[in-house]
Deep mutational scan, measured.
Amino acid sequence: TGEEYIAVGDSTAQQVGDLTFKKGEILLVIEKKPDGWWIAKDAKGNEGLVPRTYLEPYS
């Protein structure tokens, strides 16, 4: 379980453990880390770190 967020920009994984996503994708945020990198899952079930500045709450 988690909260749904929509990507407001494209982000390409810079290192192992990062999640690549495109603008408009809905991501499920699993954990919000205080350093600004959140753990999220995409629609295909891929999981990784995403920069919170690229996400907005999805409603």
Score class of each variant (00 low, 15 high):
Ser11Val: 15
Ile39Val: 13
Gly9Phe: 15
Ala7Asn: 01
Ile30Glu: 02
Trp37His: 08
Tyr58Arg: 07
Leu55Arg: 01
Asp35Met: 04
Gly17Lys: 06
Ser11Tyr: 15
Asp42Val: 02
Tyr5Asp: 00
Thr20Ile: 10
Gly45Met: 03
Glu47Ala: 09
Gln14Lys: 12
Trp38Ser: 01
Gly2Phe: 14
Arg52Ala: 15
Glu56Phe: 08
Gly48Ala: 03
Val16Arg: 10
Lys33Ser: 11
Glu25Ser: 08
Ser59Pro: 11
Ala13Ser: 14
Glu4Tyr: 15
Thr53Ala: 14
Gly48Gln: 02
Ile30Gln: 04
Trp37Arg: 10
Glu56Met: 13
Glu31Tyr: 13
Val16Leu: 11
Gly9His: 15
Gly2Lys: 08
Thr1Ser: 12
Leu27Ile: 07
Val16Ala: 12
Lys33Arg: 14
Val29Ala: 02
Ile6Val: 09
Val29Phe: 01
Leu55Trp: 01
Glu4Thr: 14
Pro34Lys: 09
Glu25Gln: 12
Leu28Glu: 05
Asp10Ser: 09
Thr1Lys: 13
Gly2Asp: 07
Leu55Val: 06
Val8Leu: 13
Gly2Ser: 09
Tyr54Ser: 13
Thr20Asn: 09
Thr20Ser: 13
Tyr54Met: 15
Glu31Lys: 11
Glu47Phe: 14
Gly45Tyr: 02
Thr12Val: 13
Val8Asn: 09
Pro57His: 06
Asp35Leu: 04
Ala13Asp: 10
Pro51Val: 07
Gly45Ile: 01
Ser59Val: 13
Lys23Tyr: 05
Ser11Pro: 04
Arg52Phe: 14
Trp38Tyr: 06
Asn46Phe: 07
Val8Arg: 09
Glu4Phe: 15
Pro51Leu: 14
Ala7Phe: 09
Lys32Val: 04
Ala40His: 00
Glu25Leu: 02
Lys22Pro: 01
Pro51Asp: 15
Tyr5His: 05
Lys22Ala: 07
Glu47Trp: 12
Val50Ile: 07
Ile39Tyr: 12
Asn46Trp: 04
Lys44Asn: 13
Asp35Tyr: 05
Glu4Lys: 14
Thr20Phe: 09
Leu55Asp: 01
Val16Asn: 10
Asp18Lys: 15
Val16Pro: 14
Leu55Ser: 01
Lys23Gln: 07
Ala13Trp: 13
Asp10His: 06
Lys22Gly: 05
Leu28Gln: 07
Thr53His: 14
Lys33Glu: 03
Gln15Glu: 10
Pro57Leu: 09
Gly36Phe: 04
Glu25Pro: 01
Lys32Thr: 04
Thr1Met: 13
Gln14Ser: 12
Lys23Trp: 05
Leu27Cys: 03
Glu3Lys: 08
Val8Phe: 04
Gly9Ala: 15
Pro51Ala: 11
Leu19Asn: 01
Asp18Val: 15
Trp37Tyr: 11
Lys22Arg: 11
Gly17Arg: 06
Arg52Pro: 14
Gly24Val: 01
Arg52Gly: 14
Glu31Arg: 10
Lys22Thr: 07
Thr20Lys: 10
Lys44Pro: 02
Lys33Trp: 07
Ser59Tyr: 12
Ile39Phe: 11
Thr12Gln: 12
Leu49Val: 10
Ala43Met: 11
Gln15Ser: 12
Glu3His: 08
Arg52Met: 15
Glu31Thr: 10
Gly17Asp: 05
Lys33Ala: 08
Val16Gly: 09
Phe21Ser: 00
Ala13Asn: 10
Glu47Tyr: 14
Thr1Tyr: 14
Gly48Tyr: 05
Gln14Met: 13
Lys41Gly: 02
Asp42Thr: 05
Gly2Ala: 11
Glu31Cys: 13
Ala40Gly: 03
Thr12Ala: 11
Val16Lys: 12
Lys41Leu: 10
Val8Met: 10
Pro51Lys: 13
Leu19Ile: 05
Trp38Ala: 02
Asp10Asn: 09
Lys32Glu: 04
Lys23Arg: 11
Ala13Gly: 13
Glu47Met: 14
Gly48Leu: 04
Ala7Pro: 01
Lys41Asp: 01
Ile39Lys: 08
Glu47Pro: 04
Gly24Arg: 02
Gly17Glu: 05
Gln14Val: 12
Ile26Ala: 03
Gln14Phe: 12
Glu31Ile: 10
Val8Ile: 14
Ile39Leu: 14
Gly36Ile: 03
Pro34Tyr: 09
Thr53Ile: 13
Pro57Tyr: 06
Ala40Ser: 03
Val8Cys: 12
Glu3Trp: 14
Lys41Cys: 07
Asp42Ala: 03
Pro51Thr: 06
Leu19Tyr: 02
Thr20His: 09
Ala40Asp: 00
Glu47Arg: 10
Leu49Gly: 06
Tyr54Lys: 14
Ala43Gly: 10
Ser11Trp: 15
Lys33Pro: 07
Leu19Trp: 02
Ile30Tyr: 07
Val50Asp: 02
Glu3Gln: 12
Lys33His: 11
Lys22Asn: 07
Asp18Arg: 15
Ala13Val: 08
Ala43Val: 09
Asp42Lys: 02
Ala7Tyr: 09
Gly24Ser: 03
Thr12His: 12
Ile6Arg: 09
Pro51Arg: 13
Phe21Thr: 01
Val50Ala: 06
Glu31Ala: 11
Asp18Ile: 15
Glu31Phe: 14
Thr12Cys: 14
Ala43Cys: 10
Thr20Arg: 09
Ile26Val: 09
Val50Tyr: 02
Gln14Leu: 13
Glu3Ala: 08
Lys33Gln: 08
Ile6Leu: 07
Leu28Trp: 14
Gln15Asn: 14
Gln14Tyr: 12
Leu49Met: 10
Glu3Asn: 08
Glu25Asn: 06
Gly2His: 11
Gly17Leu: 05
Leu49Cys: 08
Ala40Cys: 15
Gln15Tyr: 10
Gly24Trp: 05
Gly48Cys: 04
Ile6Trp: 05
Gly36Glu: 04
Gly2Val: 10
Lys33Gly: 11
Glu25Ala: 10
Gly48Lys: 02
Thr12Pro: 13
Gly9Tyr: 15
Trp37Glu: 05
Ile26Gln: 03
Leu49Gln: 09
Ser11Ala: 10
Gln15Phe: 11
Pro34Asn: 11
Leu27Asn: 00
Lys23Phe: 06
Tyr54Ile: 13
Gly48Asn: 01
Gly48Ser: 02
Lys32Ile: 05
Val8Gln: 06
Tyr54Glu: 08
Val16Thr: 11
Ile30Lys: 05
Glu47Thr: 14
Lys41Trp: 06
Glu56Arg: 11
Asp42Ile: 02
Ile26Ser: 03
Val50Lys: 00
Tyr54Cys: 14
Gly2Glu: 08
Leu27Tyr: 03
Ala43Asn: 10
Asp35His: 06
Tyr5Ala: 02
Gln15Arg: 15
Glu56Trp: 08
Leu49Arg: 15
